[in-house]
Nucleic acid binder design. Structure first.
Lengths: 148, 148
DNA sequence: TATTGACTTAAAGTCGGGTTTAAGTTGTAC
DNA sequence: GTACAACTTAAACCCGACTTTAAGTCAATA
């Protein structure tokens, strides 16, 4: 079965202009053309687009996804490099999750801060609450955030 | 103690141009000027910049940070709105962490996939590995990823 | 007072990831 | 054979978050 750019865009849930843009950026070297120059997407191209979607979700940049696609098209000789790329991306995602966990702790504190402020009608209450009265989970974080 | 834009930039670890940009975008309504028009940062402004840094880490956009700053400067009457903003941002961070956990699972699978491919010299081995031989933690994910 | 380094502004440039526009072409249906 | 929707391209535009540039000003030191 074959698809036009508009049909395939619907299948993968992006705008046709996005697929044309990816093509222009060299991310779709596998897409063929009709005699008239119109893009003809095959079933297997859908799988490639899923690969792109997956790598994009990891936060990978288009130029790196392009590199990955070219390596994958080259075959087994590039397995080592592909593994390296995936490993690096995995590390980047782990780091990002860590950062966000830190950030979440800060937001939890701020949420408590404003809930307490709201209950008392003033930020003075959470701001000046003595260390002993402060919920335990916020004692450390308030030190870090002093004045914030 | 007072600081110029360059000094304060060093203190908070950003480029002076960044602070000027934030000022232009209205994020620094608290910064005063000398008679000659030069920005004069106070100690307390450092705390505001730390607030901005913190909110930025949560992924909040500059225009929303600006809104937050203005509300915070207005005083206790805006506590409810600030709580709402923080709560929404907290939810956004939770969603983002969830997405990244999903993504991490995919990358773990791909890592195993290429490690196995590397060990055998071909992607055919992990690609066609029978369900029974597949490590348990990857059985579900391979179904979702079939062909990827 | 003159120099010098750091400041000022507006405007333009950069980057990533697209979207929109304009002018023209393809392919299908009648 | 003509109409029409959907395709083609290059180029321009958009967004957020800056950075860079250019031309000019301030303020501390010699």
């Amino acid at each position: 079965m074959f698809y036009t750019v508009g049909e395939m865009a619907k299948l993968v849930g992006v705008a046709p202009s996005t697929l044309r843009y990816y093509d222009k950026e060299g991310l779709l070297p596998f897409v063929e053309r009709s005699k008239g120059g119109i893009r003809v997407f095959k079933e297997s191209d859908y799988e490639w687009l899923k690969v792109i979607e997956c790598l994009k979700k990891t936060g990978m940049q288009l130029k790196d996804i392009r590199t990955f696609i070219f390596m994958a098209m080259e075959g087994d000789s590039t397995i080592g490099k592909r593994l390296e790329l995936i490993t690096n991306q995995r590390k980047a995602v782990l780091r990002r999750i860590d950062e966000l966990q830190e950030t979440l702790a800060t937001l939890d504190f701020k949420k408590w801060y404003y809930e307490t402020a709201k209950a008392h009608g003033t930020t003075e209450v959470p701001k000046n609450m003595p260390y002993e009265e402060l919920p335990e989970e916020f004692r450390e974080i308030r030190k870090r955030l002093r004045g914030i």
